[in-house]
């Protein structure tokens, strides 16, 4: 017998409603319910449908955090409805909760969205193993434990879209592949058996690729499977250097520029970093730079500060560097 006590509290829900076939604009319906500490968010969706309005629509299937169908947003936070406990939601946001689809602008009916952009981007990274398979192998193709660990659990992704629709970049830049697609790309790039040559190039392209990631960690925060997509994005960045496919552009030079600066000064030379990254493109920064200069925000190269014991830093940069550009 369980020793924990089940508690109940009143929660007011504001629920997004929209039927693309009938409604000109979406609206919100209010529901007030007694919620127990045992319930998950999906239980609330079920109760809205079963007890209040049979037309309320949402996707659900496995109820075990495997199929990825039931991801929605609670108070703006992406969440997998069948896995997220109501107690956590109340702890996070209090007793006034807003239930919305992952992306309100893609709503088809209530919680159901058109996920075409998600799947198109997923497909763009060749999310499958590309390998020359010997159709009549004489022995098993063994993958060592160490090699399998290189996947860093990226294979646990259930394509629920929680991270994709939490990512601020996918919202602003429609070409951006998004964290789920990058995690999928990493899953196969890190697979010892894979020999695809296009995938890493695709995720390196400007606008769509990893270089437009803003490093906000929203994806890591929301992932119900704790895949940590931004960690995979960082690894894809590193892979593009180690594989030699990183082209020289403003983004790659921006990353490399830090090393150059640290080796020279210990600290970052902000002006030099922009110059090195942008090249002739630096002219577009002149108006802002002038404003900053007037306010004492830009220091002259001859006043550039240096770290104490710079020789240590220089020695470490020499001995510990593992990447080339």
């Amino acid at each position: 017998m369980s020793t924990s006590t089940i508690t109940t509290q009143k929660v007011n829900f504001k629920v997004f409603r929209f039927n693309a076939d009938e409604d000109y604009l979406p609206y919100y319906e209010d529901y007030s319910m007694d919620v127990t500490s045992e319930e998950v968010v999906l239980d609330i969706l079920n109760r809205i449908k079963w007890d209040h309005d049979g037309s309320f629509s949402y996707r659900r299937s496995c109820r075990h955090g495997i199929c990825g169908a039931c991801a929605i947003k609670v108070n703006g936070r992406s969440t997998l409805a069948c896995k997220e406990s109501m107690s956590t939601m109340i702890e996070y946001f209090g007793n006034e909760l807003t239930i919305e689809p992952l992306s309100t602008k893609r709503a088809v009916k209530d919680m159901i969205i058109d996920k075409a952009d998600f799947w198109d981007k997923h497909e763009s990274v060749n999310p499958y193993l590309v390998a020359d398979i010997d159709e009549a192998p004489t022995c098993e193709n063994l993958v060592s434990l160490h090699e399998a660990e290189e996947l860093n659990e990226a294979d646990l992704c259930i394509q629920c879209g929680a991270c994709h629709y939490a990512c601020p970049v996918t919202e602003v830049n429609e070409d951006f592949f998004g964290p789920a697609a990058f995690a999928a790309a990493y899953r196969f790039e890190s697979d010892i058996r894979d020999s695809d040559t296009d995938r890493l190039k695709a995720v390196n392209e400007e606008k769509q690729g990893v270089w437009d990631c803003v490093k906000c960690y929203e994806c890591a925060e929301v992932c119900p499977k704790e895949i940590n997509p931004i960690e995979k994005i960082t690894k894809l960045h590193q892979m593009s250097f180690t594989s030699g496919i990183a082209k020289s552009n403003v983004a790659t030079r921006h990353a490399v520029g830090f090393k150059n600066s640290i080796e020279k000064h210990g600290v970052l030379d902000e002006g030099q970093l922009v110059l090195y990254s942008e090249g002739p493109g630096i002219v577009k920064h002149i108006p802002v730079a002038l404003k900053m200069f007037k306010k004492g925000k830009i220091i002259m190269p001859w006043n550039m500060p240096k770290s104490d014991n710079l020789d240590e830093i220089q020695k470490l940069v020499k001995s510990s560097s593992t990447a080339k550009f």
């Binding site: 830090f258 640290i262 593992t322």
Partner: peptide, 21 residues
Amino acid sequence: EASCCGASHLQDYDDFLSLVL
């Protein structure tokens, strides 16, 4: 004596170096 932390950009280029620094 501290150096730059790498600002999560050096980390994209050379993870081990950023750890050492």
